[in-house]
């Protein structure tokens, strides 16, 4: 490969057809433990399906990966996020806000159209799509668009919100006092693994206080 081509490949501006059918090209998730479980990390392109409740750490899990994806200078796109994204938190996590586009379409159809346009365009590195019902055919189409645009589409869905989709990676997340309980349902080029705990204490001490920290107002029943 010419130097130019290498450079383009690094910047994910060219991609490699179907040559790596068996496994996806992995990008570190930012968590050594998880990278080990996933044989390298998250897929650099294609669909990632995450079955999760909202507010248990699902986005925090992805932040190092998304930051990594943005390094190419390409966009990060949020489609139909569950509420107003908070600039402070994202910026503090290293997300470049000027490379973030938020789309709030009125219908699911528009959301999917927007996702496809973004994926196809080649100028988005990752698209996060929240809680949009997805049919198999459409999923195939988006997978294709993602491969064409060398982008990742992360689907955030409620647990068991639908059938198995043609994705590179499918995870299920459960809350845990010290972090997240992860189950890998499907991984291209690999096998589902047993559920395991990803400890987040060191990353978010304010959320997962150490046992010896000073007493705080304990409970509040609403």
């Amino acid at each position: 490969m010419s130097a130019l081509l290498q450079q383009l490949a690094r910047r994910q501006l060219v991609w490699h057809g179907n040559s790596q059918q068996a496994a996806y090209q992995a990008v570190s998730s930012g968590y050594p433990q998880l990278d080990q479980q996933l044989a390298g990390g998250f897929p650099s392109t294609g669909l990632i399906d995450i079955q999760t409740d909202t507010g248990i750490g699902e986005l925090r899990l992805l932040l190092p990966y998304l930051q990594q994806q943005q390094r190419s200078g390409r966009l990060l796109v949020f489609i139909s996020p569950p509420a107003q994204p908070c600039a402070d938190m994202l910026a503090a996590a290293g997300i470049v806000l000027s490379q973030l586009v938020i789309i709030t379409p009125e219908t699911a159809k528009e959301a999917l159209w927007a996702a496809e346009q973004c994926l196809q365009s080649g100028c988005a590195a990752a698209v996060l799509l929240w809680q949009v019902p997805l049919k198999l055919a459409l999923a195939r189409r988006l997978q294709l668009a993602a491969e064409q645009g060398a982008a990742t589409l992360v689907l955030l869905r409620r647990p068991a919100a639908g059938l198995s989709l043609p994705v590179n990676l499918s995870l299920e997340l459960k809350p845990h006092r010290q972090g997240l309980q992860l189950s890998v349902h499907k991984r291209k080029g690999g096998w589902p693994a047993a559920a395991f705990l990803l400890d987040m204490q060191q990353y978010w001490p304010a959320l997962y206080p150490a046992a010896d920290s000073p007493a705080l107002p304990q409970r509040k029943a609403g």
């Binding site: 986005l59 925090r60 996020p81 569950p82 509420a83 107003q84 994204p85 908070c86 600039a87 402070d88 938190m89 994202l90 910026a91 503090a92 304010a206």
Partner: peptide, 11 residues
């Protein structure tokens, strides 16, 4: 940027 802010703010 302030670190201890949630990902999403409720309107």
């Amino acid at each position: 940027a302030l670190l201890q802010r949630p990902a999403f703010i409720l309107p």
